[in-house]
């Protein structure tokens, strides 16, 4: 299996993803610069976190227009799995691979802390390693993670089982908006990550690559990368 990590000017989680994915893959993923018009043949594309193009105009807006993203869209439409983490999620919404938008956090502050997520959907190459309803702990670090979509889109995402992760209390209870602090950014319906209709694109604000080694405080993120490698061979 071959995996590719996209690198934009301003990406800062590309190396973390390289290490986390590399330990599951037992080989190094290809690092692909934003100016490349074509990604070498690959079985998985990761759009990592960071502040691509300095978040100019809107988070992810400039990156969505970069040459490499045109090929990401082409490959995604052919069924190549694409994982967008944090700024990567913002880029995937900006280029239309995922619905909705990530807005400024409701509390207006940059939030950097571990949060609890409920795994809502296990039928995907990304989430198949978890149990449905499992509570995992993954860090977030963002200023614009407040997921917004119109009610019709939100109903469809929930109805079709396309919400992959939602923010929850540590005991797995619902985050219930921002009231008990479990929803860190005001995201609609406590959404932390969503799948495309085909379930081959996942966007999530939390950073699984940051908890993929017990030495860093936890291993809940590694399950995602291990399962990707198991599923994609």
């Amino acid at each position: 299996m071959k995996a590719s990590v996209i690198v934009f000017p301003g990406s800062n989680c590309d190396r973390d993803v390289q290490v986390a994915l590399g330990q599951s893959l037992r080989r190094q993923p290809d690092m692909v610069w934003h100016g490349e018009a074509e990604i070498p043949e690959t079985d998985l594309i990761v759009v990592p976190g960071g502040f691509s193009y300095g978040d100019y105009l809107r988070s992810g807006a400039m990156a969505a227009q970069s040459p490499v993203m045109r090929d990401v869209v082409v490959k995604a439409k052919k069924g190549v799995p694409v994982l967008g983490i944090c700024n990567g999620f913002q880029v995937l919404t900006e280029c239309g691979l995922l619905p909705g938008a990530l807005m400024r956090n409701a509390g207006l502050k940059f939030v950097c802390k571990d949060v609890h997520l409920s795994v809502e959907e296990t039928e995907s190459v990304f989430t198949g390693g978890y149990e449905k309803g499992q509570v995992i702990r993954i860090p977030i670090a963002h200023h614009d993670g407040n997921y917004y979509a119109d009610d019709e889109t939100l109903d469809r995402l929930e109805g079709d089982g396309l919400v992959a992760f939602s923010y929850c209390a540590s005991d797995g209870g619902p985050a219930d908006g921002s009231r008990n602090g479990a929803n860190p950014n005001g995201s609609a319906r406590d959404i932390a990550g969503i799948l495309s209709d085909t379930r081959t694109v996942l966007g999530m604000m939390p950073h699984p690559e940051r908890l993929s080694d017990p030495a860093l405080g936890g291993n809940d993120g590694r399950v995602l990368f291990d399962h990707l490698v198991a599923a994609l061979g």
């Binding site: 105009l57 809107r58 807006a61 227009q65 919404t93 900006e94 619905p99 909705g100 938008a101 807005m103 917004y148 979509a149």
Partner: peptide, 8 residues
């Protein structure tokens, strides 16, 4: 195409 995100 760029200047506005018409979702929001």
């Amino acid at each position: 195409k760029l200047l506005a995100n018409t979702v929001i």
